[in-house]
Amino acid sequence: MYNFEFEKPSTVADAVAALAGDEAQALGGGQTLIPTMKQRLASPSKLVSLSGIAEMQGVQREGASLTVGGAVSHADVAAQATDYPALAEMAGHIGDPAVRNRGTIGGSLANNDPSADYPAAALASAATVVTNAREIAADDYFQGMFDTALEDGEIITGVKFSVPQAANYQKFVQPASRFALVGVFVAKHADGVRVAVTGASEEGVFRWSEAEAALDADFSADAIAGLTLDPSDMIGDLHGTKEYRAHLVGVMTKRAVAAAA
């Protein structure tokens, strides 16, 4: 690890100001950023911790939506998102207890790892990513592997989830990292079904629109029995071929629908 400065502001405004400097970077739970720095693959000159900002904490129900503060840990979502059980369940299965106690929703969404769980949950929930500057719809937020609509220095202060009528997340783990080899989040909203897939695609998290259309007509596992995905866009690596991932998306989608229905 290279040397760096450290700041721990107590308001979003102070954090934004602290991040204005060159090569400053926000620090959530550090579960991705710190290992990267230890490997000397990242060398921010300053870390601005978001963990002391009260306005980025808390899980709140407001009507049909559930708002999670940008610095809320996975463990807190698992324990407190009782109004959205599929989300709580998903958060409760990220990594191990240490990762869940430190890692945050903001960090996960900012990082947008192609195998992370939160991106699938946010996309399927038609979530709104709230930053210090604006609100970004999930459909516009995810822009490919490790790529998002965030500008430099922009902070995710919260995430607004639309609580669906029914939802479920199925994760098939990669045996070494236990990230998602394929994860499918299915959410049935009043205005339609959303199916978000993580772990599978070279382009990062995506919506499986054919499955959504079929499930809009008939929300049952059988409705998608005949659907297949084109393997050519899938990730192929030592843990699974493109074909295997394409197949798993189908299996996990069916299981999620069956569990949600």
Binding site: F172, P175, L181, H239, G240, T241, E243, Y244, H247
Partner: peptide
């Protein structure tokens, strides 16, 4: 015997 190999 990874899941992918067995599935294949």
């Amino acid at each position: 015997l990874s899941p992918g190999r067995i599935w294949a």
